[in-house]
């Protein structure tokens, strides 16, 4: 699991690359927190295009980051696969991180 960070004007785009499950969640959390603590940005976009697998553990990881930055930043989801999209839909994640 890898996280690639890119700035596009005021947006911070974090690309999740690989498989996000219970086994990879701790390193993913740590990597995301490290980036978020050091970055200056307005909106955060999680790009799921290269996320080849995610189960509901990913919801916990994303909600955890949301709670940390929700007062200062808007968060969006981009390019989820059909399976990941379904997990986001049934969990209600799009209510706090809309799909763009």
């Amino acid at each position: 699991m890898n996280v690639l960070a890119k700035k596009d004007k005021g947006d911070l785009i974090l690309s999740l690359i690989g498989e996000l499950d219970d086994h990879t969640s701790a390193e993913t959390r740590a990597r995301l927190d490290e980036i978020l603590e050091n970055a200056v940005f307005d909106c955060l976009i999680f790009d799921m295009k290269k996320l080849s697998f995610m189960d509901s553990t990913g919801i916990g990881v994303l909600i955890g980051r949301y709670k940390k930055i929700k007062d200062k930043h808007k968060i969006y989801i981009a390019n989820p696969s059909k399976n990941v999209d379904m997990i986001f839909q049934i969990s209600g994640l799009y209510n706090v991180m809309p799909k763009i």
Partner: peptide
């Protein structure tokens, strides 16, 4: 804080 509690719900959806 970090667990979604959605495991069985996801299984049922899939």
């Amino acid at each position: 804080e970090e667990r979604s509690g959605m495991g069985f719900t996801v299984m049922q959806a899939m």
